[in-house]
Write a protein that binds this DNA or RNA. Structure first.
Lengths: 343, 343
DNA sequence: ATTTTATTTTTACGCGCGTAAATTTTTAAA
DNA sequence: TTTAAAAATTTACGCGCGTAAAAATAAAAT
């Protein structure tokens, strides 16, 4: 790491005493050269620090070692954590992650796809916005670039989808809530941006009916990705109106629940499952903040580690098998009940 | 956007009836060609969709139009929001943002810098980890690449620093707390990762002394970036031990306060400034979640919009003026008192 | 030691674009 | 219209690397 600056592979070849094509081979796959030459190269490498020009490398490649990771909303810690996980996996597999957030904006989502395309990525891990996403553009993109969807499914798009088994997880928590108190009503946005919300609604209705209860949907207005604000505002409203059909509320996701809990607190309502509690509130996702709400939030965890791992592995498979493959695979991971203080 | 695929600039030149060098000029600066030719090019452009190969473009450039945005911890919504803002500004200025998170890891921070260097970025907006950062590597990097630091200052490194005026903001909230009740003690980590924390501690001590009160530091153990967890754990501990010197606690940042509030809630302590409240808790930053805590968190806002804007503009200036410039500039923005329920 | 096989070297070309210099064309000014 | 200035075209080279083909060398097998 000293000496004169090496400016290109030619120069590094001469100072290391190895021919340029061999050096080139080495950088594309260190194991593809004889062990003794590999050592010589590596010895030269920490004597002269040289790194190939990434632009020159990629100019003539049909695809690069880049893998795009696109999430709908980076300011949501759930997606931030997911992205973090995926980045690690991508690096471990020898690729370079390129992180992009869509900020809840469909146009930006498409732009992200476009700017990724210019990078000739080996593949993309995409969590689409859901409703609002432009399915045609995404489908188009996924035909050129190996794409694995996660979190939000867009039917038929991409090589695979990995997400949560909303059916199972909602069933789990509805069952739990019914066993331990009044059957829950379901608090959600009327037009959720996320397709999981639809699945959860259906699952809720089915679960309630299976248990012989009447489903009670509380569908509130609200747009965008500021779920806490919506949960707070609309939670405040329904609590003021005393229009809740039961004392138990299952929120479609934790961020709504966080807002709802805040509203309940401000209304002076004691939330929880003990005596003297007026309300039970549950969520879904096991959001990083859900263990610090007041009371702590009972919820169902999404197995985001498994989702991240499976997504990444699916993508690597597709990439390494040369993309033309079998059927589109959908993998759903079960959630786990997280019993905390709120229900 | 139809017809045959154009594969390079040569081909696009011929189908558009313009010479390749002119096309090249156009892409580097559309205003640098005559209006009539610009129109012809643009007409061809939406007839034949062609986008120059970014690798070929950048191969021979000493620097690209890329601007790195590095934050210490993307799963912290504060940094996520900041990054989002900066991305917008970077795009608006005609550059391409490259977002990198260091996940609280100094090695990763250095790696991020290294991988950025390969991209030959025009500049970097860097929020360093703080303590734990490798100042030498960062200094080295900042000598090659125009770098503006934000949030956390590393003295003498980079072309500029933009952050919060902790002196002013802490003064503000200490003053407020003293006016409305008992003087606060200061709850913080013994070895905070963030240099702002040191500034805030000093500012707290100075403010208290100026008001004739004795500063009371509550320095707790804890490492890493899981501030809520630390605030909760150590908050629970001090509340159990009843070792709080006053009924008012100023936390070094909102994330600690969020954990602390959660601890207080679980201990059954009523937090707030009304009668019947056993405790007042305040934070610092106006973290996105602070308006949904129970009670809502009284805090001082960081002017993150101004910080983002000023950081970006400083960087653009340095870049466009050819980097060799005047003195290193430090800009601090004042915070605003955000009076909510907790104090 | 000889043959076979696996690597490396030599040589050479191409990728897509930036860009410089000389020339021609277009536009604006006189 | 003529002249001067601005812009576009033609021509040509270089960037740093991938990579193919043929020749040379080294390692492994006989």
């Amino acid at each position: 790491m000293s000496e004169p600056k090496i400016k290109n592979m030619e120069e590094f070849a001469s100072v290391s005493g190895i021919s340029r094509p061999t050096i080139s081979k080495y950088f594309n796959d260190p194991t593809s050269v004889r062990a003794t030459t590999r050592e010589r190269i590596e010895r030269a490498l920490d004597q002269f620090d040289y790194q190939p020009n990434m632009y020159a490398i990629n100019q003539n490649r049909r695809l690069t070692k880049n893998i795009g990771v696109i999430v709908p909303y980076l300011a949501d810690p759930f997606f931030a954590e997911m992205a973090r996980h995926m980045e690690d996996l991508v690096i471990a597999a020898g690729y370079r992650p390129v992180l992009l957030g869509s900020h809840g904006d469909a146009d930006l989502e498409v732009e992200n796809l476009n700017s990724l395309r210019l990078m000739k990525p080996a593949g993309v891990l995409l969590a689409p916005l859901g409703r609002g996403s432009d399915p045609e553009r995404i489908a188009e993109f996924s035909q050129d670039v190996p794409t694995v969807l996660f979190d939000a499914n867009l039917e038929t798009i991409g090589e695979a989808f990995v997400g949560s088994n909303n059916q199972q997880s909602i069933n789990l928590i509805v069952d739990y809530l019914c066993r331990t108190g009044e059957p829950p009503s379901f608090f959600e946005m009327r037009l959720p941006s996320n397709p999981n919300a639809f699945k959860r609604r259906q699952a809720y209705v089915a679960a309630m009916e299976a248990l012989g209860h009447e489903p009670q949907l509380i569908q509130v207005d609200g747009d965008g990705w500021e779920f806490e604000a919506i949960g707070f505002r609309e939670g405040s409203r329904v609590l003021e109106e005393r229009s809740l059909p039961t004392d138990t509320v299952l929120c479609s996701n934790d961020r709504l629940a966080i807002g709802f809990l805040s509203a309940a607190y401000q209304k002076g309502m004691r939330v929880g499952l003990g005596d003297g509690c007026a309300l039970r509130v549950a969520g879904h996702d096991d959001h990083p903040f859900s263990r610090y709400t007041c009371p702590t939030l009972t919820t169902v965890s999404q197995d985001y580690e498994s989702i991240a791992t499976k997504s990444a592995e699916s993508l690597f498979e597709v990439i390494e098998s040369g993309s033309a493959e079998k059927m589109r695979e959908e993998t759903l991971f079960d959630g786990k009940l997280v019993m905390r203080g709120s229900a």
